[in-house]
Simulated scan of single mutants.
Amino acid sequence: MSNSVITVIGKDRIGIVYDVAKILADNQINIMNISQQLMDDYFTMIILVDTTKCPKSFPELAETFARESRNLALEIRLQNEEIFKAMHRI
């Protein structure tokens, strides 16, 4: 693995950035760039991350985010950067 894009969407509340950053730190994932915004009562965030040092495979990491999504009442998605770029190319 190398670079991935993580998207986070959920009802705004205190601690969302902390919760997501903790998952990243626990999995040795480095934040390369981050953008966040409030849209009415919803929090949105897009994070470009370096997963080079992450000991988990991509499917294992995707399952980690799926589990944490349920625990945190957020939608957290992990995508390979190249796939993300291809999907959003005009």
Rank of each mutant, 00 (worst) to 15 (best):
E60K: 05
E81F: 13
I9H: 02
S2W: 13
C54M: 02
Q28D: 12
N33R: 00
T7E: 02
L78W: 01
E63R: 11
V17W: 03
L38K: 09
A62S: 10
Y42F: 08
I29W: 06
A73V: 13
F65V: 03
I83T: 14
M87P: 11
I9D: 03
R13Q: 07
F65W: 03
D19K: 13
D40T: 12
N71V: 15
N80L: 15
A62R: 06
Q79W: 05
L48E: 10
L78H: 02
V49M: 05
R67H: 12
S4K: 12
A25S: 14
A73L: 13
R70M: 11
V49G: 06
A62G: 03
R89C: 09
M45W: 00
Q79R: 13
I9T: 11
R77I: 08
R70P: 04
I46R: 01
P55I: 08
I14N: 10
Q79M: 13
R70S: 10
V8D: 02
V17A: 04
M32H: 07
S35L: 05
N80Q: 15
L61Y: 00
K85E: 13
C54T: 04
I9L: 09
V8K: 00
K53F: 10
A21K: 01
D40R: 13
L61K: 00
F43H: 00
P59E: 01
D41K: 12
A66V: 12
L48M: 09
A21W: 01
R89A: 11
K11F: 10
T64D: 09
P59F: 03
P55F: 05
L38D: 07
S35C: 07
A66S: 14
N3E: 12
D50A: 06
I23Y: 03
L24A: 04
T44Q: 08
I83E: 12
N3P: 12
I83S: 14
S2M: 10
S57G: 07
K56H: 06
L24Q: 05
E68L: 03
K85H: 13
I23G: 05
S2E: 15
L24K: 04
L78M: 05
H88W: 06
F65L: 10
D41H: 12
T51F: 09
T44D: 08
K22E: 14
A21R: 03
L72G: 03
I14F: 14
M39E: 10
Q79Y: 11
I34M: 03
Y18R: 11
V20F: 00
